[in-house]
């Protein structure tokens, strides 16, 4: 498996949605993530796996434009012109965040407005993007609540009154309502009970397929990776040690670390 790719060549590949070349971030002398390069194609779901401290969350924060890496380039081809997300003005990056991109946080509290109703949470992106018809906003919000299996009667309740699983589903609706091209998810099922996780995974799988979303999912849970992702990147100590099609990586791991990871999971 060859993980050395030529960044120049990637950046020029017009078919990919996201081209990542040589992204590195350091915390003092410690490596956060180092020299990560890959391409993501439209509709593709990429998993980033590794133990905690492997740098996968750092990488996600860099890719999503939350943190600026110390080196590297991320090109996004959502619109007509490819955007270098670190060199565009903050304004453009913020616009991207509420239109073509979405971020699903591990803790729904980080992604939701806890004192705004479920309907307001889902409707915010629509209003961000200029919607000014209350009835239509509400209609869309209701539609999305149903798609994430939240009863219509809860539309005016606040997320505080929701269970953890419902909060997470609400966060997903809030992100997907603007029909983004690319969604970043950080341990989307973390902190949930196993039965709740299963339901959420099922839902995510359906939504991602139906909408043809491209997604980058960070998880330490290989079962989640197996279920949701097409392709997998394994990280250790801030570096990508192995990547390939998900089934291939999980069933026939080459790198010793990946072998260790997969063997630690009894039932995949």
């Amino acid at each position: 498996m060859n993980i050395q790719v030529n960044p120049q060549q990637l950046a020029l590949d017009p078919a990919s949605l996201l081209s990542v070349a040589g992204v590195s971030r350091f915390y003092g002398e410690r490596i956060g993530c180092a020299d990560v390069s890959f391409d993501l194609w439209p509709g593709e779901v990429l998993g980033i796996v590794g133990e905690s401290g492997s740098g996968k969350s750092t990488l996600l924060r860099c890719l999503a434009g939350i943190d600026k890496p110390d080196a590297g380039e991320v090109l996004f081809r959502g619109g007509t012109e490819p955007l270098d997300i670190y060199s565009v003005a903050e304004q453009e990056r913020r616009r991207l965040m509420r239109t073509a991109w979405g971020i699903v946080h591990q803790n729904p509290r980080d992604g939701l407005r806890m004192d705004v109703s479920a309907g307001g949470n889902v409707g915010e992106r629509l209003m961000d993007n200029g919607a000014r018809h209350y009835g239509k906003i509400r209609e869309t919000a209701l539609d999305w609540l149903q798609r994430v299996e939240i009863a219509a009667g809860r539309i005016d309740d606040r997320p505080r009154q929701f269970s953890g699983g419902m909060q997470q589903r609400l966060q997903i609706a809030r992100v997907l309502v603007s029909e983004p091209r690319l969604v970043f998810m950080d341990e989307p099922t973390g902190g949930l009970d196993v039965s709740v996780q299963a339901r959420l995974l099922d839902l995510l799988r359906v939504l991602v397929r139906d909408l043809g979303l491209a997604a980058i999912i960070v998880t330490h849970d290989l079962a989640v990776a197996r279920l949701l992702t097409d392709r997998l990147m394994v990280m250790k100590d801030g570096r990508v040690v192995e990547q390939g099609l998900t089934d291939q990586v999980l069933d026939d791991p080459h790198h010793a670390y990946t072998q260790l990871l997969t063997s630690a999971v009894l039932t995949v």
């Binding site: 903050e90 304004q91 913020r94 616009r95 509420r98 407005r113 705004v116 109703s117 309907g119 307001g120 409707g123 915010e124 992106r125 209003m127 961000d128 993007n129 000014r132 209350y134 906003i137 509400r138 539309i155 005016d156």
Partner: peptide, 22 residues
């Protein structure tokens, strides 16, 4: 100041939405 600079007024509309909803 950033919100004004870039006319990001969605959140203000959310507040009005919440009022009407309640």
């Amino acid at each position: 100041r950033k919100m004004h600079a870039w006319a990001e007024y969605g959140l203000m509309q959310v507040k009005l939405y919440e009022n009407i909803a309640r």
